[in-house]
């Protein structure tokens, strides 16, 4: 079995078989994280460069751990401590790193499409760790893995994504992936934070949270990015909390096996209350654990044999 693509740039257009293969492989890798010696020699001799042009703790840590667990050698780079500050272009930065014989590049960038651009100009396989408001495929995969663990299959699940849909790469990747695996997806948020024509991605759109939550199996709560308020997209944070914060009261009629997810970092008391984030429906920390397994799977499958 092998993936159709040499890169993991997004989940748009990735077929069911490839997503299943990544999730199955991740499920097998999860066991390694429970071992006394948490390392396997699978990627010995493979070198991975982690290029983080945008701040990240969770994702970067998760990729670095995944690389170590598979015995890959890795080098990491962050924007502030590199030649990018001296004005080097993205292409030059990566060409130089590739000249040092790197097999895989993990990239996070504030510009949508940066990983795609890279994939065209280097020989290494590229993994998108988040590009602007476009895609964050490994986050969506770990969300799907977490749901598959709990429900067995995603077929027919009703997933509601709440918050700033317009600026969310997590939302976009989730919509594509979930639809491919047969879940039904709804998005809910203030009109100003919902992209025009989002229905074309195959989702239901709600402005009122209580309508959206009716019959939901899963609520994926997005982080509110405070800078949106200064852009005039939100009347006030307090208004947002009143309308969209996930609280225990709001979940009074929820299904018994409801799942609450959050990609982190959480603004407690803004998009979700303390009580719900740490409550019985929450799988937020399972998501983090699964993140390492999913990234191991992506690295392993893309490092491929024979190429």
């Amino acid at each position: 079995m092998a993936l159709k693509s040499k890169h993991l740039l997004g989940l748009e257009g990735v077929n069911r078989e490839d997503i299943q293969l990544m999730l199955d492989t991740a499920a097998s890798f999860k066991e390694i994280l429970e071992r006394p010696i948490k390392i396997v020699p699978a990627l010995r001799g493979i070198t991975v460069a982690n290029l983080f042009f945008e701040p990240s703790t969770r994702t970067r840590f998760s990729f670095e751990l995944a690389e170590k667990r598979l015995s890959a050698d890795s080098v990491s780079f962050s924007k502030d401590s590199s030649s990018v500050r001296k004005g080097e272009t993205l292409k030059d930065t990566v060409r130089n790193i590739e000249a040092m014989r790197v097999d895989l590049v993990v990239i996070r960038h504030s510009a949508a499409g940066a990983p795609h651009f890279l994939a065209r100009c280097v020989d290494a396989s590229v993994i998108n760790a988040g590009d602007g408001a476009h895609e964050h495929p490994t986050q969506a995969l770990l969300d799907m893995m977490t749901l598959r663990e709990k429900y067995g299959s995603l077929e027919g699940l009703r997933v509601v994504i709440v918050g700033d849909i317009a600026h969310s790469r997590v939302a976009r990747s989730n919509i594509w992936g979930l639809n491919t695996l047969g879940a039904s997806v709804a998005v809910c948020g203030p009109k100003t934070l919902i992209p025009l024509d989002v229905e074309q991605l195959g989702v239901d759109v709600y402005v009122h949270l209580d309508d959206a939550l009716e019959g939901a199996d899963v609520i994926n709560v997005l982080r509110l990015q405070f800078e949106r308020q200064t852009q005039g997209l939100l009347p006030s944070v307090r208004e947002y909390i009143r309308q969209y914060c996930i609280t225990t009261e709001r979940l009074a009629d929820a299904k018994e096996n409801l799942t609450i997810m959050h990609p982190g970092p959480i603004n407690r008391g803004v998009e979700i209350t303390q009580e719900v984030a740490d409550g019985p429906y929450s799988v937020i920390l399972d998501q983090v654990t699964n993140g390492v397994a999913v990234r191991m799977a992506a690295l392993f499958l893309l490092s491929g044999g024979g190429v």
Binding site: A2, L21, A27, S28, I32, L70, G305
Partner: peptide, 23 residues
């Protein structure tokens, strides 16, 4: 045990094997 990740020919084989769980 599934020995896939410990194979010495992982980078040589043409078709990547499916990894199953070790229990």
């Amino acid at each position: 045990i599934d020995i896939t990740l410990y194979r010495d020919d992982l980078q040589v084989v043409l078709e990547q094997p499916v990894v199953h769980k070790t229990e």
